[in-house]
Amino acid sequence: MYMPDFEYHAPKTLADACVLLDELGERAIVLGGGSDILHKLKNGHLTPEHVVSLKHMTHLTEIRHEEGRGIVIGALVTPHGVYTSKILQERYLSLPMASHEMGNPQVRNRGTVGGNICNASPLADLPPLLIALNASVKVVQYAGERIVPLEDFICGPGKTLIKRDEILTEVIIPDQPATGSTYIKFGLRKAGALAVVGVAVAVTVKDNVLADVRIVMGAVAPVPMRAKDAEALLRGQTITDVLLEQAADSAAAECKPITDLRGSAEYRRELIRVLTRRALRKAIDEGHV
């Protein structure tokens, strides 16, 4: 399969990479695991003159907890790394479970969390759950760094707020009172399937009352979409089956699905209704799963 020519760079440090990107600007792209980038190079969607690989930045393959910041996931952590992370299994088991539903074993060994975000596919599996968990991303460049809420960072299909001279280095999940979270993906097969629809929720339950809730729907809008009407309906209310049904109806009404080869808009809307109800019930009853 055709691959365009480019010059390859593998800077030793993040600082070196930033200097390089500052110099190359629009002519360069940043390479993480390559699962998405190589697709785009092969099908001609990307024709960079330079490719800057992050492969020497081994410190970006770690997951750790930092006092006052929360859980910090390095951009180069693979889905397999998320799946096997002790710290995530203990605090937010929903993330390892969601990452295990991505692609297939080969892709999970090679893809990266940072790439899953920067590729900004509307049907990506990790962003909905990360947004439900109120995650932010850190992007660095030569002139400095900034932290952006993930919800704002992804701004269109394949579009994020990242500039060509910036590198996404960390995903930060703040410490929070959420008592449960989950991501339910509906794919057409058990493995190697893209989401027809995905629903992520994070709930804070106190004495059978939903103190707080975040619902994020994947693959039914140009970006992972908050079901804000459904959230407003639930917030502060006592949990009943009827209430969860109403919230599910509301989420289905709010989403903006399209018809494509994986499913019709009507089918997706119905899936949102069913999966939202299931996800809420699961996170309320079982915690972070």
């Binding site: 399969m1 390859y8 593998a10 390479l31 390559g34 699962s35 190589l38 697709h39 490719v51 690989s53 492969k55 397999h80 074993p105 080969q106 892709v107 060994n109 090679r110």
Partner: peptide
């Protein structure tokens, strides 16, 4: 030691 698709890896990586 981990399975990967060698069509999706640059040799130089």
């Amino acid at each position: 030691g981990k399975p990967v698709d060698s069509c999706m890896v640059l040799a130089i990586e």
